[in-house]
Amino acid sequence: MTTNKPRIAIIPGDPSGIGPELIAKLLHEDGVREAADILLVGDGHLWRQGADQAGVSLPLEAVAEDRIGLQAGLGWLPMETIAQEEVQIATVSEASGRSSLRCLDKALDLAVAGQVDGILFAPFNKAALTAAGMNAEDEHRYMARYLGFEGYHGELNVLDDLMTTRVTSHIGLKDVARNITAEGVEKAIGLAEDTLKRAGHARPRIAVAALNPHAGDNGKFGREEIDILEPVIRAAQDKQRDVTGPWPSDTVFLKARRGEVDAVVTMYHDQGQIAIKLLGFERGVTVAGGLPIPIATPAHGTAFDIAGQNRANVGATRQAFDLLVRMARTHRANRAAA
């Protein structure tokens, strides 16, 4: 019989950034250690570095890999991914990138083996990952490839109770309109619904943003709303799904802020990112949506400008942890039922 308490693997992120400090701070937040069994995956000196930077104590209780399932509370799976003298604070380095990837790989292995129910990672440095030979555009694609996962997946941006997905992402604005397809919109809606269900929402309420100003104003400023978005939304409504829109994108985030919807499906990168970063620059969370394992991270970066100075704000990391715990709980229950 397993308990309903999920087991979360936490990895330190880029050793040169604020990751280790953030995790040390997170572990001293109220309620964190009670919410989950936590397995720190990484080098002992990195966790000690984080505790020193944060000015807190962090007892490391080593757990053997074959005993992880028996561990309760806070445990540590020792790794040797980087020598202590190789860690250069606030510097992009191949050694730091390699360390990040090896900890991530190990956490993914543990999740695939069912030894942990979710992964929280502190920020990676993209340049360091690339220097270390990451064979993908970003960490989300890297994780999908590592897991051999070929289904639809994508980054979700979360701020407090608002989640956003996007139909197009890192492409030029001139390419956006032609990439708005019924299939793409349906997948982005589905990704939001699926992720919200995993986070405990029985019937997620999804608002779909329009592409054009004033939602096209009845076709005067563009027809994508009429030709593509409305049919997809109607089809979803016919299946009793709580999907509405297309809403003018300048006011759809206010609906979300008022708590009227759980997620906004956006058409392009800046549509959602402008609102999310404006509403809570320090609290945003990124979820690796669609992957078979719950994975979350704070939306901000490694913050080399303040690394090692005990100035990092733990807010986003805490939000990422809380969301991950909800998703990991569902994941654990589903596995137990399977």
Binding site: P213, D250, T251, F253, R257, Q271, I274, A275, L278
Partner: peptide, 16 residues
């Protein structure tokens, strides 16, 4: 801003 919603999203989000 380069286009309508790039300008309107921040304005309405700050002060509807």
């Amino acid at each position: 801003a380069m286009y309508h919603d790039q300008a309107l999203i921040p304005v309405k989000t700050i002060d509807f």
